[in-house]
Amino acid sequence: MDKNNIIDPRIKRLDLEHNPERVVLNDMENWGTFEVFHQRKRGEHHEHVGIVHAPDAELALVFAKEQYGRRMKCSNIWVVRSADIFSFSYDDEDMFETIPDKNYREASGFKVRDKVNKFKKENQPTQPTPQP
């Protein structure tokens, strides 16, 4: 790995260039990350907003409250250890590709508005649209 490309301060702090032997990290020396999910109001989805460094979930919540809860409306926050997130590999990104002639599977494939307008037009003389 090219050392000059490392921007993570936790790695930089280890000064690997001058400490070539195996570096042993003790507990609490370098905290892991927690993913933070912010909920604007009750009933809405929690949305991912970023990360915090913290030694455990309790402090992660304490930090997340100030970092992500103070500038926007907030009713709740979740934190989850980054290591507990499961994901696909970007190498498999190609499986999300779909051949172009199946647009009936995409939501945008349904031209609902056109159908509604057509229906309204056809039914106008006998069945006027109720006003809201």
Partner: peptide, 12 residues
């Protein structure tokens, strides 16, 4: 001591 704590303490 760390950025997250710096933000929290300053905010309080």
């Amino acid at each position: 001591p760390i950025m997250e704590e710096d933000i929290a303490f300053s905010s309080m």
